[in-house]
């Protein structure tokens, strides 16, 4: 009972944070709303029984990724976003699109899993179980993902590094 109440409360906080993320006009406020979304997602994982995933969610997303977001926003000193009225195309196509997408996801979820959903506290939460899954059952996908991340890092380094100036006198 307490689990269910907490689950609903933090689900509401998560959605409210996501809406606030879109509504806020200042980048820092938006980034902090995203931190709230990440943190409440971690609580949802915890309530589902995936305690290791919850802790990793907080450490990686709320603690590292979002700190870097905030860092970049602070460094660039991004100003307040300009408000526009929004385009009519987005209004006409957007709302039906979102509704259709939501319905599709709901339909797939119901079709694939039936009415049965994961019970509260039913996910395998122990670090040992997760380790076995990651490094034994799903070793190949895990390694492929790590190579993918490595490629992304190398791409970022290439994009971020300035090309060597060919003619130093002209550059300055």
């Amino acid at each position: 009972m307490l689990h269910l109440v907490l689950f609903l409360v933090f689900g509401a906080i998560c959605v409210a944070g996501a809406i606030n993320l879109l509504v806020q006009s200042h980048p820092i406020s938006s980034a902090l709303s995203l931190v709230v979304v990440m943190a409440s997602l971690a609580v949802e994982y915890l309530l589902l029984g995936a305690e290791f995933v919850a802790a990793v969610q907080v450490i990686v997303y709320a603690g590292a990724v979002m700190v870097l977001f905030v860092f970049v926003i602070m460094l660039l000193n991004a100003g307040v976003e300009e408000r526009t009225k929004g385009s009519r195309v987005a209004l006409i196509l957007g709302i039906p699109g979102v509704l259709a997408g939501g319905l599709l996801v709901a339909w797939v979820l119901i079709e694939r899993t039936g009415t049965a959903t994961v019970g509260l506290g039913a996910l395998p939460g122990f670090p040992k179980t997760i380790g076995n899954l990651l490094f034994h059952d799903f070793l190949l996908p895990f390694e492929v993902t790590s190579v993918l991340v490595l490629i992304a890092i190398m791409g970022a380094v290439v994009l971020a590094s300035r090309p060597e100036p060919k003619n130093p006198e002209k550059e300055s």
């Binding site: 902090l32 931190v35 802790a55 907080v58 450490i59 709320a62 603690g63 590292a64 700190v67 905030v70």
Partner: peptide, 10 residues
């Protein structure tokens, strides 16, 4: 502990 201290950066 690691998670809470990483939030403390904010």
């Amino acid at each position: 502990i690691l998670g809470v201290t990483s939030i403390g950066v904010y």
